[in-house]
Amino acid sequence: MPTIRINSAQSTGQTPKATGAKLAWNKADTATIAELIARYPAGQSRSAVIPLLHLAQRRFGGWLSVDAMQLVAETLDLPYIRVYEVASFYTMFNLKPVGQHHLQVCTNCSCLIRGSDGILKAIEEELHITGGQTTKDGKFTLTEVECLGACVAAPMLQVSEADGAMHYVTNLDAAKTRALIRALQKDDDAALGKLVDTPPAAPDPITPTKYAG
């Protein structure tokens, strides 16, 4: 009888790390931030905490250091703790570095029934890492996650690209999982594009200013 794997989100880091880097927004970020804050009523810029954390995570290496959270706090004129408590509450915010491609495999009920064990096994065999671990070259992190809401296309995983875009890869089996890893190893965007479940439209939900229409 196989045991249940405890979700490894705990081990993806709840203790923040400081790097001492002096982080700053660039000009495009500043324009994005102004637009994000303008979505909320005057005096409610705190609403932009999560959007800004998404932006910071993308801009500063795929994870949130104390320095990045500090920058968000300064931008929104909030005490640091108001940003840290949010960053540590939500599982999408990584408080320690993750690989360039974060493979997040759903192992909840529908995926478990349809074979998520085999997907984890295929990844473990290909990359020699288990849940919560990052490959030595820093290219891949594997995390078991809770339901990602694609249950009728189970089993599935979510994969992040180097630029921070995230995609679902669904109806997986071991062969498709291995093909995905190979495409990512070779930076083969065309192959990745064929494996992705939903081709995104033009807008980037994290930096809406980039979309001209």
Binding site: A165, D197, P200, P203, Y211, G213
Partner: peptide
């Protein structure tokens, strides 16, 4: 937040 590609389409629909 995980519905990244889906949000992309929704934003486009609104525009």
């Amino acid at each position: 937040g995980e519905y990244y590609d889906e949000s992309s389409r929704l934003v486009q629909a609104i525009e």
